[in-house]
Amino acid sequence: MRSIINYLKDIFWGVMSLLKGLKVTASYFWRPGAIVTEKYPENRKYLVMFERCKGELIMPHNDKNEHNCISCGICQMSCPNGSIEVIPKTIDTEDGKKKRILDKHIYRLGQCTFCGLCVKNCPTHALAFSTKFEHAVFNKALLIKVLNKPGSQLKKGVEQ
């Protein structure tokens, strides 16, 4: 007798548990408001990324085409993967001294792991992360970027 009651109980609880599960899924089916899909390519125009999002490394330039990089090479040293290469050049300043300025700041996006050590360690805040996250390219060579814009200058007042 006991076993028959248990048997019926099993059936009852089994069916109840299944119905509970069905209740959840069916309720979601009738609630289109719960849909969380991001309509990604369409929402590009009004897509707002979080301000700290580590999309890719950039070197902010102001409107006079000036950057903060003094080509000290700390970012290059602190990068764990060797994705940064700072190529300095020496120029003669107006008062006749030799001065080391940035020639090329090469950034290999394909090697970057977005650890943020370069941005954190930069003494002059010359580097930052942009929120651009669409990195797909057809040619690997395009992943090697030069961060300083052509003809850019060191911002006045940034100490060497």
């Binding site: 089916f29 969380v36 899909t37």
Partner: peptide, 8 residues
């Protein structure tokens, strides 16, 4: 299945 799973 999409609506059940909160998708489009």
């Amino acid at each position: 299945c999409a609506f059940v799973q909160n998708r489009l």
